[in-house]
Design a protein around this nucleic acid. Sequence first.
DNA 1: ATCTTATATCGCAAATATACGATAAAGGAA
DNA 2: TTCCTTTATCGTATATTTGCGATATAAGAT
Lengths: 111, 111
Amino acid sequence: MANHKKESFTHREQDLAAFAKALSHPARIAILKVLSQKNECICGEIVEVLPLAQSTISQHLKELKIAGLIDGTVDGPRSCYCINWKAFEKFSAEFNSLFNNLKIRNEKACC
Amino acid sequence: MANHKKESFTHREQDLAAFAKALSHPARIAILKVLSQKNECICGEIVEVLPLAQSTISQHLKELKIAGLIDGTVDGPRSCYCINWKAFEKFSAEFNSLFNNLKIRNEKACC
DNA sequence: ATCTTATATCGCAAATATACGATAAAGGAA
DNA sequence: TTCCTTTATCGTATATTTGCGATATAAGAT
C-alpha cells in the first residue's frame, strides 16, 4: 500500500513541496517562460513551441493551474492563460526563505 | 507509451526541473531541515524524527544524493549525510534567476 | 566467532505522472 | 444550420514514485 504520507508533514513543507512539484517538469518551466514572454494571453501557441501533443500541454497547464501558478479564463473558443504573479511571488519568497533558513544554520561542511 | 520527453528541453530547464523534483516531497524538505540544524552528520536520527520507515528515509536520502543536494560518506557502521552547500547554492541561485527572468518580462496581468 | 546496531538494497504493492490519440464541447464563420 | 477552429477531457498504455517489510551488509562489541 503506497500510503502517501504527505499529510504527516507541516503545512509549510507540504506547500513548498507542491510548488516544487509544479516546477519539477521541464515542460512546465518552458510553459511559464512562454507565458512570461508574451504580453497577450496565449493558448495554442504553446503547443506550437513545445514538442508535445496538444492534450499533453493542456494537462500540464491544468497542473500549473491547480498549483495556483497560472490563471486561465475562457475567451471564446480559445483559452487564455497567464502567470498568477501574486501566487508566484509568494511561493518564490517562501522558497528563498527556506534556502536562507537552511543556509543560516550550518556553514561548516562536516563530511 | 509514456515516452518521457524530458530530453527535448534545454539542459537548463532539465536541471532546474530535476532540482525542483528533489524538493517536491515534504519528507525531503524535512530531511534537509534536519541536516541543516545539526552540526554533526546525522544518520538514523532522521528516522526517529520523521514518520517514515527506515527504508523509506534511506530511499529519500538516496534521491537527494543523486540530485547532488547532499553528500554521504560511510562512517563505520553508520552513514554520515550533510548538505552539499556548493550544489545547493548553485541551484538556489539558478532558481532565483528563473524567478527574476519570469518576473522581468510581464508585469501587467492580462487575465 | 557470534551478536548487535546501523544502513542499504531487494521485492513487492499501490498511487501518480507522463504522454498520446480520439472525442467532446463551445463558439465563430460560412 | 453546418462547418471549422480551439481547447478540455476521456481512455489507455507505460513509467516513475512512494512506501514498507524482509533481507543483506558491514563494522564494532562481547
